[in-house]
């Protein structure tokens, strides 16, 4: 685990790290990933790949329904004329 990888991964996760943080996480991740190597020899199977118990065929019927009024939902949201205000996209 090198500095550049830590910076790259953090960047993709939208985190900006200080120099101290980069070093801290680099060291920690190196230690943790080293420990994860025990998985290389672990047995494995493809029985359940989503949940540890079977969760199957749970479907909702196509009935429109609104439990909470949209206005209630927007009460604490930073809005302008009902639009949610967001950062620059250009």
């Amino acid at each position: 685990m090198d500095r550049e990888t830590v910076i790259r991964v953090a960047r993709s996760a939208h985190l900006e790290l200080t120099e101290e943080e980069i070093e801290l996480y680099r060291r920690d991740l190196e230690e943790i990933l080293d420990y994860f190597r025990v998985l290389d020899d672990a047995p494995s199977s493809d029985d359940l790949l989503v949940n540890p118990v079977e969760v199957t065929d749970v479907l909702r019927s196509d009935e429109p329904h609104m439990e909470i009024p949209a206005d209630t939902l927007l009460e604490d949201v930073n809005t302008y004329e009902r639009y949610v205000r967001g950062p620059r996209v250009q």
């Binding site: 909702r60 196509d62 009935e63 429109p64 609104m66 949209a70 939902l73 927007l74 639009y83 949610v84």
Partner: peptide, 26 residues
């Protein structure tokens, strides 16, 4: 469909912004 994919909000109706929303699709 009449309702959204992962919540029951209607897919059609009020054209005003953020009228067909719920905690799931927000």
């Amino acid at each position: 469909t009449r309702s959204k994919m992962f919540c029951s909000c209607p897919t059609e109706g009020d054209a005003e912004p953020n009228t067909r929303i719920c905690p799931v699709c927000m």
